[in-house]
């Protein structure tokens, strides 16, 4: 193969098969300026026109260095010795070949979920989901990696969500849950998706609370969310942890108004009762019985004496009977009542 020397501005760096292309950093630009290009890029020549197949960052960096050309090796249009990859045994269409060369040239890079999705967005429309996983899967994932299945589900989502995956706000595993939402409901939830860094578990719980609350209320999740006030929460300047906790608690209140009312009543009474002491008070399992567990940890006689005095005071407090009988109060609403 003879090297070609191309002007980097003559190369198309925004071609879709360069799906992991990123701007060059200063270190690469400095290295190219000081030591020149040590590794050639790869091009495919079709109709006498070179198409960059690998080396987009080098090409972009060389654009910034006056008078430099891009050294590239031209790959043959079809490699007669390569095993047939196309399902029909024929040559691969050019876009697929370009994509696979690009992947191969990146072999060894750690593939993040966002990178795998970017590859999927390129290959799936060309080869179908199964074709993409068959052709590109081995280069993306280890054989025992479950991400192929998760990736397939993510690709059912609008591409606009990929940025939230790349920024770490939404995990790849949430794709199936998100894909189950109707487009309007997904749009309505989008501000909350970008507001916190969701784990798969927390997002799954949040969406379950929302969709079930909506079903019980006989309305869409978008409508439930709109009347919940939760869309205002991200603008209140809460810490990330507090915001996540607040959103989950708010969605849980929508789904379980009676349970959360009971919990809130119990919490208020137990705070009133245990104020100034280290005693922790827990309700019975599921509020099933009129009893509570009082728990205190002590390290010495003095602490135990203090705890005993605290417990004695609690026994005489007017809040105690109310706390023990908290589940006797009515908390019911008609199923489907809007909260």
């Amino acid at each position: 193969m003879q090297p070609l020397f191309l002007h980097p501005r003559d190369i198309d760096l925004s071609a879709p098969h360069l799906f992991w292309a990123a701007p060059p950093d200063a270190a690469l630009t400095d290295s190219l300026a000081a030591q020149g290009q040590l590794t050639p890029a790869l091009v495919l020549e079709t109709d006498g026109r070179p198409i960059l197949a690998a080396g987009s960052r080098r090409a972009a960096a060389l654009r910034e260095i006056k008078g430099r050309t891009l050294c590239a090796l031209a790959l043959p249009e079809a490699d007669p010795d390569a095993p047939a990859l196309a399902p029909d045994g024929g040559p691969l269409p050019l876009p697929l070949r370009l994509g696979l060369i690009y992947l191969a040239s990146n072999l060894g890079r750690a593939v993040t979920d966002a990178m795998a999705v970017a590859a999927g967005r390129y290959f799936a429309p060309l080869a179908g989901l199964d074709g993409f996983l068959a052709l590109a899967g081995p280069q993306l994932f280890a054989p025992d990696d479950r991400r192929g299945r998760l990736l397939a589900r993510w690709l059912a989502l609008p591409p606009a969500l990929d940025a939230l995956l790349a920024s770490g706000h939404v995990p790849l595993g949430a794709g199936e849950r998100l894909a189950a939402l109707a487009p309007d409901d997904l749009d309505a939830f989008l501000p909350l998706l970008g507001a916190v860094r969701w784990s798969r578990g927390s997002l799954s719980a949040a969406l379950a609370f929302l969709t079930e609350a909506a079903r019980l209320a006989g309305e869409t999740p978008a409508a439930t969310l709109a009347r919940s006030g939760l869309l205002d929460l991200p603008g209140r300047g809460l810490s990330p942890n507090d915001l996540t906790a607040g959103l989950l608690a708010g969605l849980r209140r929508l789904r379980y108004p009676a349970v959360t009312t009971l919990e809130a009543r119990f919490t208020a009474l137990s705070r009133e009762l245990s104020r100034g002491s280290r005693v922790k008070i827990r309700p019975s399992q599921g509020f099933e019985s009129d009893c509570a567990t009082f728990e205190v940890t002590v390290k010495n006689r003095q602490e135990l004496s203090k705890a005993a005095a605290d417990l004695a005071a609690m026994a005489a407090a007017p809040a105690l009977p109310r706390l023990l009988a908290v589940a006797q109060e009515d908390v019911s609403e008609e199923p489907g009542d809007k909260t």
């Binding site: 009676a258 399992q285 019985s289």
Partner: peptide, 9 residues
């Protein structure tokens, strides 16, 4: 089955 359920003892 979407009621307000808890897990009993």
């Amino acid at each position: 089955m979407l009621g307000e359920f808890t897990i009993g003892p």
